[in-house]
Nucleic acid binder design. Structure first.
Length: 248
DNA sequence: AGGTCTGTTCAGCT
DNA sequence: TAGCTGAACAGACC
């Protein structure tokens, strides 16, 4: 599920745990928690207070008072849970407890989420909702690859996942396999505008699954604009749907 | 019951 | 170098 809109929701959830002293941390899942030594993240965090919650693309991080930074990523199925899990506690891969008894957990069935101490975001591109016109043209229009593959490249711009990419491309009437070097400045500007609109709509409506194209995005789906059946192929290594009539 | 598919990221190869 | 491919995980679905 998690793409930029879900990550933003998680960030907002994390704001509700700021300002409390950390009393315990469970980082025993050494696949999800990096560095790999169990107890390392705990030792660094206990006694500190979380002071701010940030996001760039799908990457989250929490700043402590004068201490380390805690990076979080939801992976492919992760979420931030404030309530202790009753039935499936095994899905809580990383847990932080506070002095007042409250807690939050990084909950993920698939263990593809990550909790990282002092994360490095130097290779993460600007947030898809914030990137300026000229930088978008430069970063998306460069090189020679399928447009959709470039949108999914978090180093180019960050926050776009498989579903959001299909939604934005459909809104901008651009075919996913179009080559980046062939795009006009006008194409790129339109794509940027539609991508920002898709992101904002998804945040407002509660997730990327609320997109008009995402809702019909399957083998039987029809284009919401022209009602023609959707095409399906692998582009950029990911299952991709588009309207062969509207997008070129 | 077993095979296929999945919203992400990253290492490793060409 | 930039751009692919496949691996990591584990559940959902048919």
């Amino acid at each position: 599920m998690p793409e930029l809109p879900e990550a933003e929701r998680a960030r907002a959830t994390l704001e509700s745990v700021l300002g409390r002293r950390i009393t315990a941390v469970d980082d025993s899942d050494t696949y999800v928690c990096r560095p790999h030594q169990a107890g390392e993240i705990a030792a660094a965090l206990v006694g500190h207070e979380l002071v701010s919650a940030h996001r760039r693309g799908k990457f989250l991080w929490l700043q402590t008072d004068d201490g380390p930074t805690l990076g979080l990523h939801l992976g492919m199925a992760g979420a931030i849970a404030l309530e202790a899990a009753r039935d499936k506690p095994i899905w809580d891969r990383f847990t932080v407890e506070f002095e007042d008894g409250s807690r939050f957990a990084l909950r993920d069935r698939r263990r593809l989420a990550r909790a990282v101490l002092n994360p490095d975001f130097s290779h993460v591109g600007p947030d898809a909702a914030d990137v300026g016109r000229d930088e978008f043209r430069r970063r998306i229009g460069a090189g020679n690859t399928a447009l959709k593959a470039r949108l999914l490249d978090q180093g180019a711009i960050s926050g776009v996942g498989n579903l959001l990419a299909d939604q934005a491309l459909w809104q901008a009437r651009l075919a996913p396999q179009r080559t980046t070097s062939q795009l006009s400045a006008e194409d790129l500007d339109r794509l940027r505008r539609e991508l920002r609109a898709a992101v904002r709509s998804a945040i407002r409506r509660g997730g990327v699954h609320t997109g008009s194209f995402v809702e019909v995005r399957d083998r039987e789906g029809a284009c919401p604009r022209c009602a023609r059946g959707l095409a399906r192929a692998t582009v950029g290594g990911r299952t991709t749907y588009w309207c062969p009539a509207c997008q070129e």
